[in-house]
């Protein structure tokens, strides 16, 4: 029993309203990441310790960028109603995301020995990667929900925004990492 729920939209279709809402939220979240990044200089200056694992950092970056490509392909497939390709790409994205989370886990394991959270650089590293990996986890979870919803249907229909939104969120996480990576690994 669904009673009349005001559904407004005289001139804007729901897809556009949803997109606008998501973009506004991303703007807001971007503001949070700017706050995070700006605190780096305060807490540990611009120096990066030598012990940091450059190979790991670069691999994480490559992994996340690649997952953005698969996410992009999932969205394109969804728009073109290519359901099987979309599902594969969603799975691939999630897989790379999970791999990324494990990568960060390994990064933390190493970091605990060289710069634990009670040091300046450790504080920055754990906060930045911690907040970011939370976003990644939300992304994986969202993609999972979307996959769960679209796994059996034939055409994308009303679920287009679900795919698009999850993918946009994933790209946003990627953009955040684009700035976190040099901030943590490359500054001198």
């Amino acid at each position: 029993m669904t009673i009349h729920v005001p559904n407004v939209n005289h001139r804007f279709d729901p897809l556009t309203i949803n997109r606008l809402g998501l973009w506004l939220f991303l703007v807001s979240d971007a503001s949070f990441f700017i706050a995070l990044l700006s605190s780096r200089v305060f807490v540990s200056g611009t120096s990066t310790p030598d012990e940091i694992n450059q190979v790991l950092g670069l691999s994480l970056t490559v992994l996340l960028l690649l997952s953005s490509l698969t996410a992009y392909r999932a969205e394109v497939a969804a728009e073109n109603n290519d359901m099987s390709h979309m599902k594969n790409m969603l799975l691939a994205t999630m897989g790379m995301g999970i791999l990324f989370v494990f990568g960060v886990g390994y990064e933390w394991y190493e970091a605990l020995q060289h710069f634990p959270p009670s040091t300046g650089f450790g504080t920055v590293l754990f906060t930045l990667t911690g907040v970011h990996v939370t976003h990644v986890a939300t992304g994986i979870l969202t993609l999972g929900f979307v996959y769960f919803r679209v796994r059996k249907i034939e055409t994308i229909g009303d679920n287009l925004f679900a795919v698009e939104g999850a993918v946009k969120w994933w790209h946003f996480v990627d953009v955040a990492w684009v700035f976190i990576y040099p901030t943590l690994y490359l500054l001198k």
Binding site: S28, D29, S31, F32, A35, L36, S39, F42, V43, S44, P117, S118, T119, G120, F121, G122, T123, F126, T127, V131
Partner: peptide, 28 residues
Amino acid sequence: TQWVAYGMLMIIFERVFNMVFFSPPGGN
């Protein structure tokens, strides 16, 4: 508002994970 959220988060992190955002060696 995101900034104050981060401010509060920093205090919580410092309390829960013993991070050093504000205490002298390292923090500010």
